[in-house]
């Protein structure tokens, strides 16, 4: 473990972190091992965010540093092992009627960084599209996001559509977004609510580990 790289990412020093990644990469270090170091450091950034020590702008910077580090090492990773072994699959999207994606994108980025395969359906996603993707990729987890209260019904209808397709027992459904709380989780029939991107990653880990 390179203490320098780890420290640079954890303290959000973008230039220093990328310099370390390049140096390690050029010295012939196993790219998967560099990837793992970056992942562990970003996890600490996520934990600090969750603890209220870091704020959203800083979590974004952490995710960006990770992304840039991956750009350095990814050419050397073998095909199919681009981001190491997949820990599990997640289908994610902002539900129909809502086009907000800041939180959803960050959840997707943090999940990818944590080693999950993420199928990001984008924004304004129809319930049929969620059902289709669940059927096609068989994810362990579906994540639905919304900022607008008017989207609560769409979240509920999407859960019902997944159920009507006979797929509800095969997935855990988590919801998140500005006004989404425990009560909304109950209203829409989801399994969990994630307050932020870091918590969403923990939820997915728990769901996948519990299978």
């Amino acid at each position: 473990m390179s203490k320098e790289l780890y420290e640079a990412i954890v303290s959000l020093e973008e230039l220093a972190a990328l310099k370390c990644v390049r140096e390690e990469f050029d010295s012939g270090k196993d790219p998967l091992s560099i990837l793992e170091e970056c992942r562990q450091a970003l996890e600490i950034v996520g934990q600090r965010f969750d603890a209220g020590e870091y704020f959203l702008s800083e979590l974004i910077l952490g995710a960006q540093i990770f992304k840039e580090a991956m750009e350095v090492i990814s050419p050397a990773l073998e095909d199919g092992k681009n981001e190491g072994a997949s820990l599990g699959k997640v289908v994610i999207g902002t539900v129909k009627g809502d086009i907000h994606d800041l939180g959803k994108n960050l959840v997707a980025a943090m999940l990818k960084a944590a080693g999950f395969e993420v199928y990001d359906l984008g924004v304004d996603v129809a319930r049929e599209r969620f059902v289709e993707m669940v059927r096609e990729v068989r994810p362990q987890v579906v994540g639905m996001s919304a900022l607008l209260t008017i989207a609560f019904n769409e979240m509920r209808d999407t859960v019902m559509a997944i159920e009507a397709a006979g797929l509800r027992d095969s997935v855990k459904i988590m919801v998140g977004g500005g006004p989404v709380n425990e009560a909304v989780k109950g209203y829409v029939g989801a399994d969990a609510v994630g307050r932020n991107a870091s918590q969403a990653v923990e939820l997915v880990k728990m769901f996948v580990g519990g299978k």
Partner: peptide
């Protein structure tokens, strides 16, 4: 966009 702005604050 907030993502880019967050990076601007640091860069």
């Amino acid at each position: 966009s907030f993502y880019q702005f967050a990076l601007d604050l640091a860069r």
